[in-house]
Design a binder for these strands. Structure first.
Lengths: 199, 199
DNA sequence: CGTTCCATGTAATAAGTTACATGATTAA
DNA sequence: TTAATCATGTAACTTATTACATGGAACG
């Protein structure tokens, strides 16, 4: 699916500004859709020019003015058509796994760093999860998707925590702790919550 | 990580032809690295021109001739440097999850189709897993990575199979079976094995 | 006799990324 | 007063994708 199709789909549930789309993306889609958002305004303008959207200027007094975009009939048809006919692509590119598979060419410190960084990312994802879980207005479908992500995150953490020692050659007699333990990771995800998200 | 960096890394363990890289990719990296491979030959030529590789022509009698690429000192340094200094990006784009979260705009048949297609993809991934598991010459690091993928695939199948009914509004009194059951999926992954991979 | 495997490339295009650029308001 | 939030855009560039293009050998 192309970014423009996705934008049209996001507008199926009502008009949004570019900024709204950005926020929505950052909060709910970041974990399974990877796009840079700098071009979102350009995309909206293009879609507008092509007749998929109509744009309404909204003047605000204590805020910068904004533009609300809404689907035209054509836009709505296109969005639905994408939902029905696109064959979904699963596009995963995990530098982490790629690099780890070359661990024989790296020093142990790098391996530890990579694991810890990844656990950190997963921890942040859990934070977003908990924020989402605490909101109402979620459709059963969104709940389904969130549950899937939750399961994936937890499976990965579980695997990393139980297996990461396999990556270290010199386990024995190594007094310095290499890794955070599972409790610390999960705690980081709940307690530091908001702070973490802002990093 | 860029494709060219990855190619350099793949060559760390010995010279390969473009075709070798393709094969290696298709067998072991497909599941967590998403790239189109048409440009692999172009990339090799570019890397050669830039002094990262040296190329040896190998004439074969009962096969098309091929070109074996090997790292130069510069190429090796660049590969190692990428492994040590790149900050790994996790790039997931799951059209499946995106589309599913808009299920309220789709007919039930489409939802079923999406779930079944996804289970099919996962099934194929399990086939690749089983082929990989049966090979020797795997470093502990590769085993680690495979284990991770295995865990991820199984977690997703588990989730889909136990929760997919949540997506169907009219569960009651629906006689026609909507989905394959878990045993059928896992069986498809082992029995049909090779045949599936070729689709 | 048809399909898969081995093996390599080119050219045009589309898409997305990075970096640049601005500016008022509000909460800490 | 400093950082974060709200809010929108442009231009140059890099990258990757799609489609095209070929051809012998082996296998079933």
């Amino acid at each position: 699916m192309k970014v423009k199709d996705m934008i049209l789909c996001l507008l199926l549930d009502g008009p949004l500004s570019g900024y709204d789309i950005k926020k929505k993306y950052e909060m709910t889609f970041t974990d399974y859709i990877d796009v840079a958002l700098n071009n979102i305004y350009t995309a909206l303008i293009d879609l507008d020019d092509a007749g998929f959207l109509e744009c309404e200027r909204v003047d605000q007094n204590s805020r910068p003015n904004k533009k609300l975009y809404n689907l035209t009939a054509l836009g709505r048809r296109t969005a639905i058509s994408a939902l029905l006919h696109v064959e979904p692509r699963q596009q995963i590119t995990s530098d982490f796994l790629f690099i780890i598979s070359f661990a024989s060419h790296m020093p142990q410190t790098r391996v530890k760093q990579l694991i810890n960084q990844r656990l950190n990312q997963l921890s942040k994802m859990l934070v977003r999860q908990s924020v989402r879980f605490s909101s109402d207005e979620r459709t059963p479908y969104e709940i389904f998707v969130e549950g899937m992500i939750d399961a994936a995150i937890k499976a990965e953490i579980e695997y990393l925590v139980t297996r990461r020692d396999d990556l270290l050659e010199s386990k024995k007699g190594n007094k310095t702790r290499a890794f955070l333990n599972k409790e610390e990771i999960l705690e980081a995800a709940t307690v530091k919550g908001k702070r973490l998200l802002k990093q």
